[in-house]
Amino acid sequence: MRNKGNSLTRKILLLVQGLPYFTIENLQIIDVPPYQLRIALSRLEERGEIVRLKKGIYTSAKYVEHIRARGTDATFLEFIATKIYPPSYLSLDYVLYENNILSEVPFGLTLVTRNKTYTVHNQLSRFIYHRIKDELFSDYQAVRKNGYVYYKADKVKALFDFLYLRKNRIFSRGLAEELRLNLEVLSQAEISRLKEYIEREGSKKMKEIFRFLF
């Protein structure tokens, strides 16, 4: 029985070693009942040979070692962040910090989603998803890098998302200043585009926040 179990775990590792992530559905070509696959995955996780990204989604430890050796682990994290809880795109604090608009290091990768707000914490990082209404889930860009394709806001859309999710808490110029946003990095064209997003959203609160900041 133990030999059969070891044989199954070896088959799984061979099958997934080149995949950036996998689910139990990817293992259906192995002709065993799903409950046996789940037992094997649990054993592999206990042995540190696979990493659970969230319930039902995994990557192999060898794949993680491989991308770290190549120096592409940051890109992999961005890619995997959008796969853990789709549909989603990178935005908010993570993108603002990357573009020097925020100076405080974010506690993980921040994303916008159409789904309910959600947080995942695994061995690789923390992934924080904030819900935004469907009509504002837009204007992100496709990133193609190191063989991965995923979605990410630029700094203007990330700033809009950041302000929108705080619009009920920013009701004075002083509170806007407390955000400590470095808006000097924005060009006039980017400020105009932010204003366009705010005009499209249409609320008095967002227009007032824009006046507080600019």
Rank of each mutant, 00 (worst) to 15 (best):
Lys4Phe: 13
Ile39Glu: 15
Ile30Asn: 12
Leu163Asp: 01
Ile39Asn: 11
Glu65Ile: 09
Lys62Asn: 15
His121Tyr: 14
Asn115Gln: 13
Ile30Glu: 14
Leu77Asn: 08
Glu49Val: 00
Asn122Trp: 08
Ile101Glu: 00
Ser42Ala: 11
Pro87Ser: 10
Pro87Arg: 04
Phe22Asn: 01
Glu98Gln: 11
Glu78Cys: 07
Ile24His: 02
Leu165Phe: 07
Leu165Arg: 09
Arg180Glu: 15
Val32Glu: 15
Arg131Tyr: 10
Arg10Thr: 14
Leu37Cys: 05
Ile50Ala: 04
Arg211Lys: 08
Ser7Pro: 04
Lys167Val: 00
Arg52Pro: 03
Lys133Phe: 08
Glu49Pro: 01
Thr9Gln: 15
Phe76Asp: 06
Lys62His: 06
Leu213Gly: 04
Gln123Ser: 10
His130Tyr: 11
Thr82Gly: 00
Phe127Met: 14
Pro33Val: 11
Arg114Ala: 09
Leu8Ser: 10
Leu41Asp: 01
Gln28Ser: 13
Arg200Leu: 06
Val112Glu: 01
Thr119Ser: 12
Glu201Leu: 08
Gln141Gly: 13
Ser103Lys: 08
Leu175Cys: 04
Ile67Pro: 02
Ala158Ile: 07
Leu124Val: 07
Thr117Glu: 13
Val156Lys: 00
Glu208His: 05
Glu65Asp: 15
Ala153Cys: 11
Phe127Gln: 07
Arg169His: 12
Leu181Val: 06
Ile12Ser: 02
Thr59Cys: 12
Arg2Val: 15
Ala61Ser: 15
Gly71Asp: 15
Ala40Met: 03
Ile30Gly: 07
Leu159Met: 03
Val105Ala: 14
Lys204Arg: 12
Val105Asn: 14
Ile101Gln: 01
Lys195Trp: 11
Ala176Val: 06
Tyr151Ala: 05
Leu41Trp: 00
Thr9Arg: 10
Leu186Asp: 02
Lys204Gly: 07
Gly18Ser: 12
Lys155Ala: 10
Glu25Thr: 10
Leu186Gln: 07
Leu53Ala: 08
Ile80Pro: 00
Phe107Leu: 13
Val149Asn: 14
Glu201Ser: 07
Ser88Pro: 06
Ser172Gly: 04
Lys155Val: 06
Tyr129Asn: 02
Asn122Lys: 05
Ser203Met: 07
Gln17Gly: 07
Leu90Asn: 04
Thr9Lys: 12
Asp161Ile: 01
Arg131Ser: 14
Thr82Ile: 04
Leu13His: 05
Leu111Ala: 10
Gly71Ser: 13
Arg193Lys: 12
Pro33Asn: 07
Ile24Lys: 07
Tyr148Gln: 09
Gln188Arg: 09
Asn100Thr: 02
Asn168Ile: 05
Pro106Ser: 11
Glu184Thr: 12
Thr23Pro: 02
Tyr94Met: 09
Pro87Glu: 13
Arg114Asn: 06
Lys167Tyr: 08
Gln28Met: 09
Gly48Leu: 06
Ala189Lys: 15
Val156Arg: 00
Leu41Arg: 00
Leu159Gly: 02
Thr113Cys: 03
